[in-house]
Design a protein around this nucleic acid. Sequence first.
DNA 1: CGGATCTCAGTGACATTGTCACCGACAGCC
DNA 2: GGCTGTCGGTGACAATGTCACTGAGATCCG
Lengths: 224, 224
Amino acid sequence: MTGQGTPWVERFPGLSRLAPDTKELLLSQSGLVEVPPKTVIFGPGKSPENMLFLLEGTVRVQQVSDTGREIVLYRIHAGESCVLTTACLLAYEDYSAEGIAETAVRAVAVPRRVFDDLVSRSKAFREFVFAAFAKRITDLFLMVDEVAFQRMDVRLGQRLLALADAAGAIATTHQKLSVELGTAREVVSRQLQEFQRRGWVQQSRGKVTICDRPALENLVENHG
Amino acid sequence: MTGQGTPWVERFPGLSRLAPDTKELLLSQSGLVEVPPKTVIFGPGKSPENMLFLLEGTVRVQQVSDTGREIVLYRIHAGESCVLTTACLLAYEDYSAEGIAETAVRAVAVPRRVFDDLVSRSKAFREFVFAAFAKRITDLFLMVDEVAFQRMDVRLGQRLLALADAAGAIATTHQKLSVELGTAREVVSRQLQEFQRRGWVQQSRGKVTICDRPALENLVENHG
DNA sequence: CGGATCTCAGTGACATTGTCACCGACAGCC
DNA sequence: GGCTGTCGGTGACAATGTCACTGAGATCCG
């Protein structure tokens, strides 16, 4: 898997510091995988057998409740790894989270055996792995905090700002936004109407456009 | 730290499988710590420098929101380790979780250097560590699910059942129960009144007693 | 003992959010 | 054109969160 040009390990901030022989091992023992958008990469009844390192695209990880409702837990972007989710799934069978390719995804698959070998040999690799775990766990702490204590309008404002492109446009439905926040569609509709009434956003079918970004930012900053 | 009788590593399900020399290393390079109840073991502005393995007692980990509200994230019991929380705190300074000794706690402290050495050398130790991470993360997934989607009466019922002793007694205040669930005291008071009205619990100052355990279990099972 | 003070729990009014049932508007597809 | 599915709007109601206030026990100390 030594591609032309810069090898992929250089694109991972934490991995570029690996020793040359470790990089070589990682490069030679891994394989490239590509999946189309909307592929379910892992989920109930579908465990991954490899650790993935994302080169391109994003993977959305969401929890599906037995009540049928859903909430987005986090996303894995290019330059990040799936190690922790994968590790969880390997250790515990009774999970209910699923990972879905939001875009076309290119990733490097590292077999479990190679992963374990690398953790054993390389201190830099260990630091990469533990940093990924740590980041994920602190993010989940903040997630719990947000879901438990933050007002809906603030959370919606946050997501709109995070999902908007440079022009302030967001191509999504109220339904999808409600899954982002783990709430009901009607709640999103009501909040967006209120935002529109205040002149902060414009709506059309399947699309939301931010008109007054500073106003939304102010809402988020002052959390109410 | 080679105590009399069985060494402490034998009390950890995942560690008893370590190779003899690894156990020896762990035993010789670690120290015993004891802290009184209510000690803040880690928290904002107080990073721990060691990984802890709990021999006795429990540690409560809770998130403190900037709004002043709190929620219990999980507990660490005897036979479990603090590795992941510790790892997080070492990696990220801007956390807002804190760990508090609920009881008197006896624990073994393993320096970071020794921890890293063990991860490098022992496959069994790696499995122990990754299993701990995996368990914690899947638990946090479920926690998010519960906070986002579960009804308050069901969640309160769960906690009452979990916290009650054999006689069904729970020595706690409504305030403390509200922190367990991340809600307001008034909400707990109202729910407990409803439970009492139905004859499921008895209340007195600083104490709740379960009278009809099957009824509560039924509430929890049928989640409504 | 009596009073000051604190914690604990109860209450009502109200705001926010979740649930349910239903409706019409729009887009794609024969 | 009509059929069908998705998308979004609406009103009524239930559940939960917020606020201000109350009194009942516990503790402390004079």
